[in-house]
Design a protein around this nucleic acid. Structure first.
Length: 508
RNA sequence: GCUCGAUUCGUCUAACGGUUAGGACGAGAGAUUCUCAUUCUCUAAAUAGGAGUUCGAUUCUCCUAUCGAGUACCA
């Protein structure tokens, strides 16, 4: 088959999109771009009960943040508009009726209460109720009722649904790009509802197949939770006579919880202390959940991490730009088993991305944070200089704020342990000598270290003791990058001043 | 319960019948360093179990176990 690649991401707006959904969108996107095809966003809002305001906008903003661009969608438009199923509701009934006419579906008039009662009855007998070939001619369906009766009921406004007439004892042979050949016997399947008169809306199964057909979708890439309904979908394509243009299917492995069992769910984020959503989510009911963007993840790192969860390039490369992902991605490298999400790995990816982000960009990000959190107002140039000194120690931009703190703010307290370790009388004497030496220098710069080193060596002092005492005096702690690098940043006068303050405050 | 799917170091994974079963995260040790971090080097760590097929199984088949998904007038 040599048709144009067209894929769709078809979420339903029932809440925030979690990272499993983002990954599905990403794989669809990568597949489309790799093959020079189209990526379509279709909103499947056929469940009026579960609709959540804001979810749709959230989905689009998430994809945008991730750098996943949409070719056809509710904002972008396209030849198959509208792309929101609630706006396409008129088109589905006809297809459902066609199926009834061709004998592949039927009307059913059972109420929700009747079905509940039936399920309960079966349960009491230790059986499971299935709406299938065994019961459909006994229940209130167009298979049992006369044509006139059916017509009359519909006309007088009885509530009805159209159900698919699942064949009895037929083996459906299916191929999945990721899972290979699958056979399933239809006797284990039930008669799914395709259309409901109550809200004049199709269910997922009907809307999905009809729209994929109408939108000329070539490949359906979706989560593994859909695998059990694949035979129904195959049969629907057959019943409609669309076998020749039926898309190929690829069912992705699920994303699992980091600990314990089960697939990743929307509530896991707060429990494990990491986000499961790309963006901060404020639900209409007042709950909030943290997002990768707000936690300080770079979109590239987030996408990179997600891409490798269930797919690998077959090489040992781990860092990929979006373009590299597009170039290398292929469905046959997608794994079959569920992947457990690792927060540590996510952080590692972010640190890698932070390291290669220009200092000036990072400085621009933290400039407002410096003001807000430390009360420090400085220039982009100063912040850039400070950032370049410490950026390889950070995982998130927000880490930079703390790391850079002592470059802008003189210490007022001195770490007790370090004082005990380094603030010894002889070290204090050496510090005074070193202060005099530094005072003689025209300026402090990175190379001043050589001057200090030569001085230490000529006096047969201990470099470790002296430098740490100096560091403690200037920073209040015994950590951080090269002390003369910091000295160059804060300047000679400030460095000397800090030494004087320390000598006075810590005493001898 | 039934149906389908999955199973390689703790985690993500490579090896598409023949390797000392490789890499990454994390962990541990060491080196470098004025400290901390980075970086570098090294170490520990896996084919769920059992039968087959084969000269040879991580890889193919079957059984068992475990995990997962589905079993809605939800997607």
């Amino acid at each position: 088959m040599n048709r144009r690649v067209r894929v769709r991401f078809a979420p339903s707006p029932t809440g925030a999109l979690h990272i499993g959904g983002v990954r599905t969108a990403l794989y669809n996107y990568l597949f489309a771009r790799h093959h020079g095809g189209d990526f379509i966003l279709r909103i499947e809002d056929t469940d009026s009960q579960r609709f959540v305001p804001g979810a749709e906008a959230y989905i689009m903003e998430s994809l945008k943040w991730c750098g996943i661009t949409i070719d056809e969608g509710i904002q972008e438009g396209g030849p198959h508009a509208p792309y929101r199923q609630s706006e396409r509701k008129e088109i589905y009934l006809k297809y459902a009726q066609d199926l009834v006419a061709s004998g592949n579906a039927y009307y059913a008039f059972d109420t929700a209460e009747q079905l509940d009662a039936l399920r309960k009855q079966y349960e009491e007998r230790g059986e499971t109720f299935a709406y299938n070939y065994a019961v459909r001619t006994q229940l209130e369906t167009s298979l049992k009722l006369s044509a006139d009766e059916v017509k009359a009921r519909i006309e007088r406004g009885d509530v009805w649904v159209i159900r698919f007439k699942m064949p009895e004892n037929r083996n459906v042979e299916m191929d999945d790009i990721i899972r290979g050949h699958i056979t399933i016997n239809t006797s284990t399947l039930d008669d799914k509802v395709l259309y409901k008169s109550a809200d004049a809306l199709p269910t997922y199964h009907l809307a999905n197949i009809v729209d994929d057909h109408l939108m000329e979708i070539s490949h359906v890439i979706r989560g593994e939770e859909w695998l059990p309904s694949l035979p129904l979908h195959f049969l629907l394509y057959e019943a409609f006579g669309w076998k020749d243009t039926q898309p190929e299917f690829a069912h992705l492995p699920l994303l699992l919880k980091p600990q314990g069992q089960g697939k990743l769910s929307k509530r896991d984020g707060d429990k494990f202390g990491f986000p499961v959503f790309p963006l901060l989510w404020n639900s209409p009911t007042g709950e909030t959940a943290m997002g990768y963007r707000e936690e300080g993840y770079f979109p590239g790192a987030f996408i990179n991490m997600l891409a490798l969860l269930g797919w690998n390039p077959g090489t040992e490369q781990e860092i990929f730009s979006m373009q590299e992902l597009i170039d290398t991605f292929s469905l046959d490298k997608v794994s079959k088993s569920g992947a457990r999400f690792s927060h540590d790995k996510a952080k590692w990816f972010n640190a890698q991305y932070l390291k290669v982000t220009p200092s000036e960009e990072l400085a621009a990000i933290i400039l407002p944070m410096l003001k807000e959190q430390l009360g420090v107002e400085t220039t982009l140039e100063r912040a850039t200089a400070a950032v370049s000194l410490i950026k390889e120690r950070a995982t998130f931009p927000k880490d930079l704020v703390e790391l850079v703190r002592y470059m802008f703010i003189a210490p007022t307290e001195y770490d007790e342990k370090s004082v005990a370790k380094f603030w010894k009388p002889e070290n204090v004497e050496r510090l005074k000598e070193l202060r005099a030496l530094l005072a003689e220098q025209p300026e402090i710069k990175a190379e001043t270290e050589t001057v200090a080193h030569d001085w230490v060596v000529s006096h047969e002092y201990s470099m470790g003791q002296i430098m740490n005492t100096l560091r403690l005096a200037v920073l209040g702690v015994s950590q951080g990058p090269s002390i003369f690098g910091i000295g160059a940043f804060i300047g000679k006068d400030e460095m000397l001043r800090r030494i004087d303050v320390a000598l006075e405050k810590v005493g001898k």
